[in-house]
Amino acid sequence: MPQDEVSTLTDTRKAIYAVGCDGRYEIVPSSGWEAEAEATLQAVDELARRAVEAYDRVAAGAAAPLYFHMFDRRMDIDLLSQASGIGRWRLKRHLKAEVFAKLPPKTVARYAEALGLKVDELKRLPAVRPDRA
């Protein structure tokens, strides 16, 4: 019965099925399992890595801020395409800074909605570069 106090769960606990001394199954709250946290952190780190990479590309002028916000919201082209209802091919074009700048407000609003951002937030890069040690 793991009680590894993993960071991914913060202060919540999850229910785990465990066999007690009497051989009976019971539900026990657990502060997490290290093996699971390792896998979760790996995935979270990978998402963070993509967001930081995207930030640098946008800062260098190689892509529209949309490119950063997509990864910052833990999405990729497939996910954002599904969430916004805008086809993958069109979306890929919209990631270019010069194409994005000319998009009609209606299209920009669809991206903002899908990403849960205000339109002006979507149009710029946050001042602080996200980083995760």
Partner: peptide, 15 residues
């Protein structure tokens, strides 16, 4: 491999 474990442990049961 991490994905296999995540599917096994997290988006399922804590077991």
């Amino acid at each position: 491999l991490g994905h296999v474990v995540r599917m096994q442990e997290e988006i399922g049961t804590g077991g």
